[in-house]
Each structure stands twice: as structure tokens, then as C-alpha cells.
Design a binder for these strands. Structure first.
Lengths: 145, 145
DNA sequence: CTTTCGAATTAGGCATACCTAATTTAATTA
DNA sequence: TAATTAAATTAGGTATGCCTAATTCGAAAG
């Protein structure tokens, strides 16, 4: 066996997912995603980003022209949206529990890669139920604060 | 900056936490934890376990005598119990959502290292509330199955 | 007491994903 | 158009955590 890779339920490594997530965010916010901006968003060096972007190109998750720019492929876009959606669901859920934004950000960032589809659906259902039950929500948020 | 380490809310790496968790399990089940059993439980080689056990000794989380055996130190035991407790809480929570044991095991194994104390407390409170609300639980479990 | 054999260790590597330093590209400004 | 400079790339490393192969240890059996 070569190496025990960190793979998520979506089939990609946690690093790949982090990159795709930020790239989609940047594209949504500014229309494009430059190496320097991805590096700043992920708090890593530009060299590391160049490296990964070339790898994502090789994996057909995006198309990259050196020194020019990148666009997500259809499969890259689909995957990035699934990642973003999962991120949103988890954030919404923790928000209803009354946790602080800082804690939510940290925990979602760490755990998102490890949540399977069934668990995600269960948490989505739970979130919907919590939305309809303000009394229950209040009890939970009281326990946290 | 040297390397972006995978650190949990408890301050240790995810690998260290996995080892401590299994070591405590083995000690609870059989009274002792041998290298060969730790390796089997974690599905990694004995060589890797020897390596890590020596590191945990250097970090004073356990005391190890070569070729002999190991015992957890007080701080190692405390940490291992925190990890086990967190694992239990997360497992209990997902169980109430109606997820299968296989999914629960996989997801908890991945996410446990990334859950902060505030989030853990919130999930604990939520779990307690779910226990008291069989109707809500039934709705959630229906959504999953 | 010696042989045997499973358990443990050491030595040497590899993959992922990061880094810094040096260089190259391209866009902007003079 | 030439010079400047920000952005991107390449080259060469490092840390973590895993591996296999070879060796050493020690417990149990003869």
C-alpha cells in the first residue's frame, strides 16, 4: 500500500476540496480566481497554489493556462458546488445551535471533508426541524451561551 | 513557517489522537496494549506503531519500555479519555439521527478531531433534547431511511 | 540450555502538501 | 518602446506519517 490518503465522501483529498471551495468563492465574488488571491484566501504560498492548480488541471477539474488564468470545468464546477453546499448546510446547522461565527468557521472548515452524504441529509433534516421549533432552539442556545 | 500541522482542539495531531483512542480501547478491553494489536486496530504496520509509540513516550503521553510494553501517563490517560468521550458523544448523536453503524463509524472517525469544545457541548445539549422528543426523532429517522 | 518463532525494532523510502529563493512572464507606467 | 513591478513559475527542501525489508529480542517448547 502506497499511502493512506485523506479522501472525502466526494472522492477528492481535503486539500483539493479546500482549493475548489475557495476558487468557486473567488469566481462568484470577482468573476475570476488568480493564483495570488487563492493563496491569500487559503493563507498559503503562491508557489503551492501554482502547483495545485496544475494538478487540478491534470485532473480535469479546471482548465489552466500558465500565466493567464483558470476556469472550472463542468465537473470541477459541479464538485465545487457540492462542496460549497455541504459547507453551507453545516454552517447553517451550527448557527442554529447558537455557536459563535469564529467557532463555526473553524469547525466546519475541519469537519466538512469528512461528512458523508447520508449524514449530510440527516443534518439537513434536523436543521429544517430546528427552524420550525423556536422553543427547542432557544433551549439549545441557552446551553451554549 | 515550517508545515501546517493538522491539530485538533485538544492540541494533538489527528494521528496522535487516533493512536491514543485505540490504546485506551485496548487497555480497557484486555488490560494492556501491544504494538501488534495497535497496528491491527489502526490497520497500519507495526513499524509505524513502534515509531509513534516512541514519539508518544517522548511527549510524555505514555511510558514505553522497548520490547516490553507501555502504560499511559496521567496526562495521556486524561487526553485519551477526552478523545473517547468526544467520540462517544458524536456517535450517540448520529445514532439518534437514524444513520447506519457503518456511516456513523466512518464519519465520526473523520470528524472527531475537528470538533471544538463549544460545538461538542452544543451537540451534547442537542442530543439530550432529542432523547426527550421521540416524535422529533421519528421524523428525522424517517427522512434518512 | 538451546532452538524456534512471533513480536518489536531499525534502516531506508515514499507520498502529500507545504515552504523559500530565484527566475520568468506580462501588464502598466514613464 | 523601454523600464518597472506585480504575479506566476520553477527548483530544491522540509515535516508528517505511512511503508517494506532486514534485523533483533525474548518467551515458550523441546
Amino acid at each position: 500500500m502506497p499511502y493512506k490518503k485523506q479522501r472525502s465522501a466526494l472522492g477528492s483529498s481535503t486539500a483539493v476540496e479546500d482549493y475548489l471551495e475557495r476558487i468557486l468563492e473567488l469566481i462568484n465574488a470577482k468573476g475570476y480566481a488568480r493564483v495570488v488571491d487563492i493563496a491569500a484566501a487559503l493563507k498559503i504560498s503562491q508557489a503551492s497554489v501554482t502547483n495545485m492548480v496544475q494538478r487540478l488541471d491534470a485532473e480535469s477539474l479546471l482548465k489552466y493556462e500558465k500565466y493567464r488564468g483558470l476556469i472550472l470545468t463542468t465537473s470541477g464546477k459541479t464538485l465545487a458546488r457540492q462542496i460549497a453546499h455541504r459547507h453551507r448546510l453545516l454552517t447553517d446547522f451550527l448557527k442554529l445551535l447558537g455557536l459563535s461565527d469564529r467557532v463555526i468557521y473553524h469547525d466546519v472548515e475541519g469537519m466538512e471533508h469528512h461528512i458523508s452524504l447520508p449524514t449530510l441529509r440527516a443534518i439537513e433534516a434536523l436543521t429544517n426541524q430546528l427552524r420550525r421549533r423556536p422553543a427547542l432552539r432557544a433551549q439549545l442556545q441557552a446551553a451554549v451561551v
